[in-house]
Design a protein around this nucleic acid. Sequence first.
DNA 1: CTTGGCACTCAAGAACGCGGAGTGCCAGAT
DNA 2: ATCTGGCACTCCGCGTTCTTGAGTGCCAAG
Lengths: 337, 337
Amino acid sequence: MLDDRKLSVLRAIVEDYVSTNEPVGSKALAERHNLGVSPATIRNDMAVLEEQGYIAQPHTSAGRVPTDKGYRLFVDRLSTIKPLSSAERRAIETFLANAYDLDDVVTRTVRLLAQLTRQVAVVQYPSLTRSAVRHIELVPIGADRLLLVIITNTGRVEQRAIEMPDGVSEDSIAHLRALLNAHLDGCWLTDVPGVVAEVPERVPVDERPLAATVLSVLLETLIEKHEEKIVIAGAANLARADLSRSLRDVLEALEEQVVLMRLLGEVSDPTSLTVRIGTENPHESLFTTSVVATGYGAGDQAVARLGVLGPTRMDYPGTMGAVRAVARYVGQILAGS
Amino acid sequence: MLDDRKLSVLRAIVEDYVSTNEPVGSKALAERHNLGVSPATIRNDMAVLEEQGYIAQPHTSAGRVPTDKGYRLFVDRLSTIKPLSSAERRAIETFLANAYDLDDVVTRTVRLLAQLTRQVAVVQYPSLTRSAVRHIELVPIGADRLLLVIITNTGRVEQRAIEMPDGVSEDSIAHLRALLNAHLDGCWLTDVPGVVAEVPERVPVDERPLAATVLSVLLETLIEKHEEKIVIAGAANLARADLSRSLRDVLEALEEQVVLMRLLGEVSDPTSLTVRIGTENPHESLFTTSVVATGYGAGDQAVARLGVLGPTRMDYPGTMGAVRAVARYVGQILAGS
DNA sequence: CTTGGCACTCAAGAACGCGGAGTGCCAGAT
DNA sequence: ATCTGGCACTCCGCGTTCTTGAGTGCCAAG
């Protein structure tokens, strides 16, 4: 139903429109891409493509513009992910290699991605779900407060202040700390609740109030922090691309954690790229934008997601290449530390 | 040189222009504010105000608009900070009271401020300078890596991974930890370098390589983290106010840490509000914006700054009220924890 | 010093015309 | 059967012109 030439025409339209930001006409197409046919022929093909909903004209007697469906076909069948230049690869490598802690890795990654794609970059912090406990620390601060610090093997550090019951001795705290570490060291965070359930029995009766408080906060922290932290960068790039929908709506959407979470999408196949185009997005303010996202993590275990957001009129092959490359490098960094 | 009525006229111009966003003319002024004089008189006053540089007209035969100098005079002498409504105060209180750790306090504060002022809010993390060491933790992760965790009395937790020299025993680490805590507990961060210098002598010879590594990283961390972390929120509000300078430039400026730092300004008198109007700003992209900032911290010790950024055409009394109120509440929260 | 009157200015908006890019369709060529 | 050149048609974008009205500055009188 769509022969090769029609597909070529669609590809050409997408490419031209992306680079010029102007509706593309049959004549210009015939000139710039050597399709070996006349404008008239192209017009016929375009009529078919329009009928099928792959392209549209903003006004009668204007050139054609790809629809979301057109971009979708382009991404799925007409384009290949464009690998980065070796210069870009080196830049990524050196930029990320100098990071010295998890915060820094994430910050650098999001900036890098924004700069590389010239779009808005979004990076989710490595999830706790796939992490294991490396160490638990209990630090008294002041007379009646305690700081609970959880360190994971993904390098993440969670902290939380706890109000202590009265009259808790240093010894009790030390004891509880030892107990927690003995039981939880190396434990997957997802398994923590189960393991924790067994702990209270092993605590001397007079230390139980303290233990109960600490354990409940511990569980709470792990659960609450499941709503993952997300950072973005490159919002300025949005202003360059004139979104038809008011830029304000998009910016607002980007400030809502919930929307951002759904934006990156579920981890279906963590190693592959997710591309969400225009109205495929979960939030109405983002109907004129596209998202390219993928999972990342040490090895092939995806522990979180990252991606970029830009106008639907975006350089998909290039963006996909950048996102994939960055995800891989970050994975290597995480694996190495 | 400027009599009372002229000042009233200036105030009226600022207020009207802020609320309508349109150049204000003599007739409208005479109607809306009962100044008891005719438009013609006002015109004369306006001519003087213009000559002195407090107002300007966008085009001949348009109304007048305040200049930066005009806003400055307005802020300094013609307006009073507007206290928040009690509903707003309650909202702040409950919103901030539910925060459970430092990160959370900061995040909530910046959002609150953005929402309250409907502008871009900027909050700097409490500085390490005024903090003291509460606890230092050394956690082995993997065979040859060590995680250094510094907990301060302001609730901040710094972490950093360290490559260990070969063949370090658990005992050495425990020993070093004890030593560090013994020496540094309660120590002002600014005093840490001095204290640290004395430590090596007290370390057994075979543990010195480890100690040296850890100490150097410790110092490095404290110094590096002096470039303070800053969070912003409410970027979407920028889109509402149409800046004459391209919105993109402003967004870009907001993504640069350095600019942000200078934006909040130096702590001159920490308890008072700093207002920086238009070209008084340190960065050219921000010449059409104003900043209202102040210091905050537990008690009256300012440990960091917060503020908002908006168009020069801003409701100064209201914004100043909100910034001041939020700073105070955050101070209370920090003092209480 | 204030006020009403008056001539002048100029931005913004509506009305108009036109050029040109682009289309759809048809008849002839391959 | 498909491609191609030709042709009439559409309509956006742009520049031009005109009008309107808010606002000004100045002046002479109160």
